[in-house]
């Protein structure tokens, strides 16, 4: 099945070693963005090249590999990345979160709790949480070095004074172990609480921006907030139409041109397992 013309998991061993070094540094300094010599991958920047390089660097032949995009295993880019590693590494794929040892994700953290021994790889478009406050990389690196995060708090405060709420609903910034402010990748803020105290290793890869960062197991991760405006993980206030879950993140699906909607779990594996266990939502057949 595997393509003999390429090394196991596509990247050559030297490149993997370079990436593994960056990962180790990232794990040693949680939340710190480690520059790495990102390679051109056979899929475009923006399609998850950072995540793919991390996955390639940590993948072992005995891994069970799962890929999700928007929480789903069957979205086109998830299918494409899974096929890439099936072809270049020949590893077994799975859609079950509990069976997987290595999970690559775009924009979600699975609903099912992760366990020790699992690795969750995030695809990151813009790794710098301060980027939209300060476009210069030379400046933002200084701000991190000096722990100068006042600008971020001012931004959140301005949101509150203008809208009454912090108007960030995804890629909501977190502070790691009381030190680095980190971009959790564009996951909805609903997923933020899952980042902290997690038994699994979480790796973040930004290919185009050439940065890797990491959360080792059981890291303290706090979403930025104010005492009088505490962080709130929000989601659509509905149960899942298919499995009836009330505690999962939901996609809104437009059903007809009259604008009828239904809400379904974004995590397809979670929803499917609940349905298999006999749970039914109001829209289930």
């Amino acid at each position: 099945m595997t393509d003999a013309a390429y090394n196991f998991a596509y990247l050559d061993e030297q490149t993997k070693r370079m990436i593994r070094r960056a990962i180790l540094k990232g794990l040693a300094i949680p939340g710190y963005q480690v520059p790495f010599a990102s390679r051109e991958m056979p899929m475009p920047y923006g399609w998850g090249t950072g995540g793919v390089q991390l996955t390639a660097a940590v993948m072992c032949p005995e891994d069970r590999f799962k890929v999700i995009d928007q929480g789903a295993d069957d979205t086109t880019n998830a299918v494409s990345i899974r096929a890439f590693f099936e072809r270049t590494a020949g590893v077994a794929a799975t859609t079950r979160t509990d069976e997987a040892t290595l999970i690559q994700t775009r924009h979600r953290i699975p609903e099912a709790p992760l366990r020790a021994g699992q690795v969750l790889v995030f695809q990151v478009p813009i790794p710098e949480p301060l980027r939209f406050l300060e476009p210069r990389e030379s400046e933002t690196r200084k701000m991190h070095a000096l722990e100068e995060y006042g600008l971020m708090h001012v931004k959140l405060y301005e949101d509150i004074s203008r809208h009454g709420h912090i108007a960030t609903s995804y890629a909501y910034p977190v502070q790691v172990e009381g030190r680095y402010v980190m971009d959790p990748s564009p996951i909805p803020k609903f997923d933020n609480p899952k980042l902290g105290d997690c038994p699994a290793i979480q790796l973040f890869g930004a290919g185009r921006e050439q940065r890797i960062y990491a959360l080792p197991p059981y890291t303290r991760v706090v979403s930025l907030d104010f005492e009088d405006h505490p962080f709130e993980a929000s989601k659509a206030d509905h149960p899942c139409g298919l499995c009836g879950a009330t505690d999962s993140y939901l996609d809104e699906v437009i059903m007809d041109d009259a604008g009828r909607r239904m809400f379904v779990c974004s995590d397809t594996d979670f929803c499917g397992q609940r349905q298999a266990a006999g749970h039914r939502g109001k829209d289930a057949a």
């Binding site: 920047y45 086109t76 880019n77 709420h165 890629a171 993140y249 939901l250 974004s266």
Partner: peptide, 27 residues
């Protein structure tokens, strides 16, 4: 780099869009 990042916005973003929808509705 430029074309990749530019064109990636055509990939699914419905999870993030959903969270924005909820926020705008709330506001």
């Amino acid at each position: 780099q430029a074309t990749g990042f530019l064109e990636h916005i055509k990939l699914p973003h419905y999870v993030d869009f959903q969270s924005e929808l909820e926020l705008v509705r709330k506001l």
